[in-house]
Design a binder for these strands. Structure first.
Length: 137
DNA sequence: GCCAACGTTGGC
DNA sequence: GCCAACGTTGGC
C-alpha cells in the first residue's frame, strides 16, 4: 500500500462533489504535469490518498481510495497524460490545515511543502499515520 | 542544447 | 492582487 496526496481547488472539484459521487467514484483528470503523471502511474488499486483543498481552505479534508489504475486521460487531446479513478473513503473528523502541517517538524519533508505546485505527491507511511491522528482518525 | 521569456499555480 | 516557484516554449 502506498499513500498519496491529491490537490484540487474546491471551485474546480471539491471534496463534497467527490463524496456525492459515492462508490462509483470519479476520474481524476486534468493533470498536465509530468511529475504528477509519474506519481499517478505508480498508484495501485486500493492505495489511499489525502484529498487536499488548495487556495480555498488550504487543508486536508478527507481520504480517497484509488479504484482504477492509470489510463489515458480522456480530456487530454495530446494523449500524453493519464488519469486514475478515485472514490471518497472517509472525511477527516478535523481537517488538517497547511498551517498545522508546517508546524509539525515530522512533516517538513512532505511534497506538499517542498513542491507547492505539485498536484499529486507521495506521502510516507509515518506521515500518513501522523496526519490521520491529527485529523482525528 | 541552452536560456530568456512567458504562463500557471498556489501561498500569502 | 502580488509574487515566488517552476514548467514550457521558442529563438538562436
Amino acid at each position: 500500500m502506498t499513500y498519496w496526496l491529491m490537490k484540487s481547488e474546491p471551485s474546480a472539484w471539491s471534496w463534497d462533489q467527490q463524496v456525492a459521487k459515492g462508490m462509483s467514484g470519479e476520474a481524476w483528470v486534468g493533470v498536465r504535469n509530468h511529475t504528477a503523471k509519474l506519481n499517478m502511474m505508480k498508484m495501485k488499486k486500493g492505495d489511499r490518498a489525502f484529498f487536499y483543498h488548495s487556495n480555498e481552505g488550504k487543508e486536508i479534508v478527507g481520504i480517497v481510495e484509488i479504484i482504477r489504475e492509470h489510463y489515458p486521460d480522456p480530456t487530454d487531446k495530446t494523449g500524453k497524460f493519464v488519469c486514475v479513478d478515485i472514490k471518497a473513503d472517509k472525511p477527516l473528523k478535523k481537517p488538517v490545515t497547511l498551517i498545522a502541517v508546517k508546524a509539525e517538524k515530522a512533516l517538513a519533508d512532505m511534497d506538499l511543502l517542498k513542491q507547492s505546485r505539485l498536484s499529486v505527491g507521495s506521502v510516507k507511511p509515518d506521515e500518513w499515520k501522523l496526519i490521520c491522528r491529527m485529523g482525528g482518525i
